[in-house]
Design a protein around this nucleic acid. Structure first.
Lengths: 208, 208
DNA sequence: CCTTGAAGTGACAGGTCGGTAACATTCCGT
DNA sequence: ACGGAATGTTACCGACCTGTCACTTCAAGG
């Protein structure tokens, strides 16, 4: 009893969802498997039947979070198909909204919390970050930004910083200015030269 | 035996130094007080005679780190007295150098690792972050940047992001572009308008 | 009906955690 | 040389940790 998640769906799904939620709230090291099982309305044995170890559960949670991130990119794309500049706007708005709901990036938090994690965990984190970096750089390229990679890294550093800064300084800290700073960076890089709009050749705009 | 820190100085200092070093390497939750005492070449009882609890030891470590940060600002100031623009350059170089040596910011890491920490720990973190923000904004103001606070927050988000990004993505990730992005932001804000024109004089230099 | 397999239960191993008590020893200023 | 303070040693506590055990319940499907 006292599970914070109603007993709907299969135990495996409840365990996964509960684990993610508790990891976010209390941290990974601050959450024991007992607490996860009980909070999921099940028991430890069932947890271990579905997940080989706590590490495996952590990886499963991260993979789940990665699926959410993929969905976010789909939302971004759908918000303005074929208009990458507007997609960047959407991205900023979604990231900013996420700042207030979540306790930072689950992957970055895991990297900080588990500096000596097993290789599979660290690989999952690094691989996810590579994917996100490429997704963002892709939109920047599509937007005709000349130094797309550099802009993507600038934005990447800012969002990473905003998410961790909020945990250290709260909502009133520097993270409150993320959207502001991000838009300014985009404008700066766009002025710097965007083939399709200002000057220079648009090599390969993906038709549309 | 097997203390990684030679038994020089008073036990209290050795404990503090060892704790900081272990917290950095293994994380706070990943480091037990037994390990700290042994690695400091002393024992748990002596540790508890000098520090009321592990939380108190954590706070002491953070205060020690804050002293280091103060020294960094002094170095920045001394690198180019009365030339805030050059001080910003120094700051970037020092931060970048620190990226490769440390495992991120001890305060931010603590905030991520201890989402449910006692209030004194969280206050120490938040207060430190406020101080750093103000230090950086102060130099930006002295440099005659019109939107000094905004630039300070932009740089603050970037450095915070670089430090956490390195832990998740390694040295080849976005953190490798921190100096690049930071200098670009400074140039952008400087062009945007500085009361005394392009780069020059901080208006009210206390004669020196 | 009976079989099968997933899920639930309580107990427990083996270990580490933060923290304490009682006592022995060493150091150092006077 | 003395005495008090600082330090070291050993043992211990209760709580929590991950992970495993044997066993029970129960519902679906043939």
């Amino acid at each position: 009893m006292s599970g914070s998640v109603p007993a709907t769906g299969r135990p495996k799904d409840r365990i996964l969802g509960t684990a993610r939620s508790l990891f976010r709230k209390c941290g990974i090291r601050g959450t024991g498997v007992d607490a996860i099982a009980e909070s999921a309305g099940t028991n430890k044995m069932t947890l271990y039947r579905h997940f080989q170890s706590k590490d495996a559960l952590i990886v499963a949670c991260l993979e789940d979070a990665a699926r959410d991130a993929e969905e976010l990119w789909r939302t971004v794309e759908a918000s303005a198909p074929g208009e990458p500049r507007k997609q960047l706007d959407t991205w900023i708005r979604l990231v900013e909204a996420g700042l207030h709901h979540d306790r930072g990036c689950e992957f970055s938090n895991a990297a900080v919390e588990l500096p000596e994690a097993c290789s599979v965990v660290r690989d999952t984190i690094a691989s996810f970050k590579r994917t996100q970096r490429e997704r963002l750089a892709g939109i920047c390229r599509d937007a005709g930004i000349r130094e797309a990679d550099r802009l993507a890294d600038t934005l990447g550093l800012m969002v990473e910083g905003a998410r961790v800064s909020r945990q250290a300084s709260g909502d009133e800290g520097p993270s409150s200015r993320f959207a502001d700073c991000a838009r300014m960076a985009i404008d700066h890089f766009a002025l710097q030269g965007s083939p399709g709009i200002a000057n220079a050749p648009a090599e390969n705009q993906p038709a549309e």
